[in-house]
Amino acid sequence: MKKIISFNVNGAKQELYLDTRKTLLKMLREDLELMGVHLGCGGGDCGACTVLLNGEPVTSCLVLAVDCEGAEITTVEGVQQNSELHPLQQSMIEKGGIQCGFCTPGMVMNSLALLRENPQPTEVEARQALSGNLCRCTGYAKIVEAVLDTGKTMTNSKEV
């Protein structure tokens, strides 16, 4: 079965005719070519496919695209502002929070959701919030550092 679905992705309206079996992850990659959405485990365990669905972080591998009618979706491609990297992205680079880069988009999206809600998280809060994102390279320390640093430098939570 196929269905027409309309939603908003990174600020742009989209209308697609989709197989009901398609996950949000596959729709974003295959139909909209947003390759920043990474397929890791496909079972909600690794967090590499994290996007914001109506402002809240979700593992897009566990969402049916047809269940997103009317939704606002943000992927890592929609994070930069006026073609400049978001402070969190900049901080990830500066602190060495990126190695192979596979987990990075998911880390950025989930951290962004955290910082919007809690602009100055403690280390424990940051680690708890990111517990659903696996990274096999960095050992997490530098990622957490990048998140905490972004929180400190961005005093105005609205900027996040």
């Binding site: 967090g47 979700v58 593992t59 566990l62 969402v63 919030a129 517990s131 659903g132």
Partner: peptide
């Protein structure tokens, strides 16, 4: 339960 992302859903 699970993670932030899962708890959203």
């Amino acid at each position: 339960v699970a993670s932030e992302q899962i708890r959203t859903l």
